[in-house]
Design a protein around this nucleic acid. Structure first.
Length: 265
DNA sequence: GCTAAATGTTGAT
DNA sequence: TCAACCTTTAGCT
């Protein structure tokens, strides 16, 4: 289940597996058959990610554009891959490796200009080397909508989803409902830095882990599930810092979690 | 074993 | 505003 870090990790992985190789493409499910036939046997040029969008390139102008949505997944492994079953949208494979795409909101073959159009409507992605917080600040300090909604708005900042929203705001004691235009420049800079660090850690680890070891319930092993977060999905459980029950409320169509004591404004 | 909810967006109404 | 996407997992039984 993907926020920006998942897509960047995936792009890296697909590039390792397929760049510079001739790749077989098929759509056992049938919803991507025509495009798969066009790409079958072509030389793969690699994959890249921006925000939550993934692009796969071949030795032809068209580009595969994928958005995983809420429960899409791109799973890879060594051959022989499992027999195709269920709604397998796209399988890419070489003699050595396979990668299976399921459940994506978007899987389409687009013209090269289409990539620019998609990037044009996205805000700055903290995972890009040239990420630009200035354009994000400009939008943030003009909006009266809650900062918790603005953080999730992909036209403002690309790659942040519900987990990073909850955890980044908690890290700075900011209430999700606080109007974005009341944020000071210092507060915004700190939040941007935190989001950048959290996303990078996510790419490295392959999961979202925001808790410091001393704040976890279990002291041994890797933090998993609820143990890996301060407030996300911890409704009514005691805040790891102050013990106040964590609250939940819907914000921007998703459940928002916060500690009413640590995040007062 | 079953159900509901989930790290998200699109497109119809 | 809401269904669709159609998988996975947590939390019940």
């Amino acid at each position: 289940m993907p926020e920006g870090h998942t897509l960047h990790r995936l792009a890296k992985n697909l590039t390792t597996l397929f760049a510079g190789r001739h790749v077989r493409a098929s759509s056992p499910q049938g919803r991507f058959t025509e495009a798969a036939a066009l790409l079958d046997g072509r030389l793969c040029a690699g994959a890249s990610a921006y925000g939550k969008h993934l692009f796969i390139r071949f030795d032809r102008p068209e580009v595969v554009h994928v958005h995983l949505g809420l429960y899409g997944s791109f799973r890879s492994g060594s051959q022989p891959g499992p027999a195709p079953k269920g709604a397998l949208r796209l399988r890419l494979e070489t003699a050595e490796s396979y990668a299976d795409l399921r459940g994506a909101t978007v899987c389409e073959l687009i013209e090269p200009e289409g990539v620019g159009q998609i990037l044009a409507r996205l805000g700055s992605d903290p995972l890009q080397r040239k990420a630009d917080p200035e354009t994000v600040w400009t939008k943030v300090h003009r909006r009266r909508t809650p900062i918790g909604a603005v953080l999730m708005d992909q036209t403002v900042l690309a790659g942040v989803g519900n987990v990073f929203r909850a955890e980044a705001l908690f890290a700075h004691g900011i209430h999700p409902l606080r109007p974005a235009n009341t944020m000071t420049r210092d507060e915004f800079d700190a939040l941007w830095l935190t989001v950048s660090i959290m996303l990078r850690a996510g790419v490295r680890v392959g999961r979202i882990v925001t808790t410091k070891p001393e704040h976890r319930d279990r002291r041994s092993g890797q933090a998993r599930g609820e143990d890996a977060h301060y407030v996300y999905r911890r409704t009514d459980l005691p805040c790891r810092l102050c013990g106040t029950p964590v609250r939940k409320e819907e914000l921007a169509m998703r459940n928002s979690y916060w500690c009413p004591n640590c995040q007062r404004d």
